[in-house]
Design a protein around this nucleic acid. Structure first.
Lengths: 214, 214, 214, 214
DNA sequence: GTTTAATCGAGACGGTACGTCCCGTCTTTGC
DNA sequence: GCAAAGACGGGACGTACCGTCTCGATTAAAC
């Protein structure tokens, strides 16, 4: 999480663990109060009751700090014990993800760090490890359940299966993010249901027609 | 486009149309060279050979300026004369949109202004009018063609049809943006084809299985 | 008064004489309201109901404009019909001059244009002609009256007489200005009387002692 | 000298004393090169090799900075060991003061800050403490010497003596400043002698006549 | 129980960009 | 051809943060 591992050097005063927690918490609160672009390192330090140097000793800059601060929010996403069908699981995940994107700290931070990462390879990697990759478990777990239920086949080609999982992930996450942040329309139950129908059944199902797919 | 309409009052020296064009062009070039976060109003003014006050007379800030500067890029997206099938049209649009997102000025600007807009209602409206809404024509035109070909039904419920179009738009745009910018993976022909199959046929088609949708 | 003589060119619309008066009046009011350093050309133009170009067509800049605007104030200084003695005349002039320096427009403008003139030969000349030289008449007239009364001798050496008049002028004006603006102490009747005693009788009179001047 | 006393709180990095000296020196040089009205805070900072914020941390603005920068020049004024008579002492001080006013940094700064102070009580106080009051010692010391020599009486009324000293100060300083800056004529030995004669002996001595002061 | 060294807070430092104000000029339309 | 209006290129303003650098004062492991 931190810039340099404090356990590397063994002598001297160890870094305060409380400070870390206070900083990340202060960062989230500052995101709520100010939004990404008005958030400043100095303000976070003041909120956390910490000197600016203490921040910079742990994080290289605002982007890295914010990625770590919001990453834990995404870890709260979970599949519920059992919803009975792939459609129900998908709908549940969509609504849960949408609820997360309603939180102002996630809302303002997510797009901002992604934008920042378009010109910063290290940041891109950090986002991927801290946020993106960890949510793919939802797709994998959903597929596993659907396969157990017999809703989806067990695929023999593992790399093809991985590609499909990535595709599903981009479609689901992308659609929800786009609806919520770009189109700025609510992701409510009605939309989630329509999206799930489209996802599972394609345009055929979404329009009540039987096209002849290629 | 501008902060205040100069045509409102007809007295005094009129605003320079050349300056407008120079500023927008300079903004795009600065986005390529510096990226969103390093782009400054002063730098854009200098590149455009224009005083900072001339910028601020027209745009309230960096976000508004950048939205207008990149909006024209999105207007270049077009459906080709004829591709024969809905699948082919969709694939074409996906690849064309992906190509746009490969352009550094669009790549760095799009997410940044969306992030900014999460706390700025006026900016949200501006983005919607200048960028988002204008691309929905691709979905509508694609549907019209598919309907003419008999691939999609003519829907009687207009509001339902509009909702479906919005859904398709969010899914397509969201998936491509997420793949390209968040997952940071290439949107190549292979991916575009897989996505199109999923979009038209649903998970059933994507996994080669026949699920029983709800 | 003006930058270029408007009578030089005979064709086209003649310059408005009302504008001149309005501008000078607006300048004085702006000096009262804002002081020298906050006074701007644009503000004066707006107060006068005149375009900025109209100002610049007549005056080269703020300094020149202000010199002309305050010059008329100094022309109001006059010796009264008769006060009976040189001492009384001197005291009267001192108090009258002090009253002028109490007016905020004169107070803030006088030192400012003098300061500006230290690096501007043309402005120095303008100040001398418009303000300084014209007040020397008070010294000359005072001397003439004193000579008629027999209080002062008729000097035969005219250049020496002129030098003495200049000296008196610098001493009187300088003392009052310094007391009022630099020391920032009031020039009241008591001070004016003490100053007059010193001026006429020297330190001997001022301290009630008989020194032995060189 | 500074805006806030850094010695108040003893925590944090102390202010650089070198920066203070560099800034004041740079200010004097900028006054010589540019004059008061063209001197800018940014230019002074650049000359001093210092950030603009470092200036503003110490001085509220240009006026305060310049007062401190030129104050030291006035401290160089001194009475010489012994000149034998009050007249000689006075003449010496007049010439020394005139020499100071020949220095372009003093010339351009003095009137400017006085002009500024007409609408700024705090600045007026600052000028009085940093410049004006400290030069009154010359008058007091000159009187003390003259009293020792028997040229002037020891006055019993202390407040009257103080008033007289203030009067002398305003007359001497005012006359020299007015001659040098307003009349823009040289303060040479001849003028200094004529002024001293007037000061010590009054108009009687200056015109070679015996008036009958009131 | 000292050393010893990395930590902590505070805040000054050299910088960069901000968005505003004013400068003095130029380019319109209208009298 | 002058006037009002207002846009123009330009420069300085004073502020806000940046990320770094001293400071003196802890603080805990190593000796």
């Amino acid at each position: 999480m931190c810039r340099t591992t404090p356990s590397a050097g063994r002598k001297g005063r160890p870094r305060s663990a409380e400070a870390d927690a206070a900083i990340l918490s202060a960062t989230r609160q500052a995101l709520v109060d100010l939004g990404w672009s008005k958030l400043t390192m100095g303000d976070v330090a003041a909120r956390a009751g910490v000197a600016k140097t203490t921040l910079y000793r742990r994080w290289a800059g605002k982007s890295e700090l914010v990625v770590d601060a919001v990453a834990v929010l995404f870890d709260e996403l979970e599949l519920p014990p059992d919803r009975g069908s792939l459609a129900a699981d998908a709908e549940y995940v969509v609504l849960q993800f949408a609820a997360l994107l309603e939180r102002p700290e996630a809302r303002t931070a997510l797009m901002a760090v992604v934008a920042e990462s378009t010109r910063d390879e290290a940041l891109r990697t950090r986002i991927r490890h801290a946020i993106v990759d960890r949510q793919k478990r939802l797709v994998l777990e959903g597929r596993r359940r659907a396969q157990e239920r017999g809703e989806l086949p067990y695929e023999s080609d593992e790399s093809a299966a991985a590609r499909t999982a990535d595709l599903i992930f981009d479609v689901v996450a992308g659609a929800v993010v786009h609806r919520s942040l770009v189109s700025a329309e609510p992701v409510d139950t009605q939309w989630a249901r329509a999206f799930t129908v489209l996802l599972l059944g394609g345009l055929a199902a979404a329009t009540g027609f039987a096209p002849s797919p290629r």
